[in-house]
Simulated scan of single mutants.
Amino acid sequence: MNTTPKHDEQMAKLTFASVYPHYVTKIEKKGRTKDELHQVIEWLTGFDENKLQELINDKVTFKTFFEKATLNSNAHLIKGVICGYRIEDIQTPLTQQVRYLDKVVDELAKGKKMEKILRSE
């Protein structure tokens, strides 16, 4: 299943600040911490807590968020299905990056061990 141009455009325009509280709620409901969430986000994007807060305050879109990010060199190891899309088959780089983030947050919420989430070769 591939994404549509409309779907990709929606991903690009969505603000990180609008999604972040949902990430926090999702992981905290499952007994994980905000610190763990920040660790996962930092692994994927290179953003420390201060930079993350700055991006939230600036209400950046996911397009800007990932343009500023330094994607982890092992991000390509994130595989599987999220929101009905097989991550490794997504052709649009930005949409794939957003789904990488969704997937690692989902794995955190599902109780996966941190060393498994923070993939290494």
Rank of each mutant, 00 (worst) to 15 (best):
F62M: 02
A69E: 06
A109M: 03
K6G: 01
C83R: 12
E115H: 12
Y23N: 01
H22S: 09
K51A: 05
E36W: 12
I27M: 03
Q96S: 03
Q53V: 04
K103V: 10
I87A: 05
T92L: 10
I117C: 01
T3N: 08
N74T: 14
Q39A: 13
V81W: 08
I117A: 01
Q10L: 08
K29R: 06
Q97F: 15
K26D: 05
Q96V: 01
Y100R: 10
T92Y: 14
T64V: 15
S73T: 13
V24M: 03
S18I: 06
A12T: 01
K13C: 04
K113C: 09
K112Y: 07
E67L: 08
E67F: 13
T70S: 13
H22I: 08
A75E: 12
L94K: 03
E67P: 11
V40C: 00
M1Q: 07
T64D: 11
L52G: 06
E28R: 05
A109Y: 04
A75T: 10
K63L: 08
K110I: 04
I90P: 05
I82E: 07
T61R: 03
L14D: 03
E36M: 13
T92F: 15
G31C: 10
V98W: 14
N2P: 02
V98H: 14
P5W: 00
I90E: 07
Q53L: 03
Q97A: 14
K112H: 09
E121I: 09
D89A: 07
E54G: 06
I56L: 08
F16M: 02
Q10K: 11
E54K: 13
K116I: 14
K6F: 01
T33M: 10
V24G: 02
E54T: 12
K103L: 13
K63T: 06
L44G: 00
Q91N: 14
K63C: 04
Y20F: 15
I90G: 06
Q10Y: 06
V104T: 11
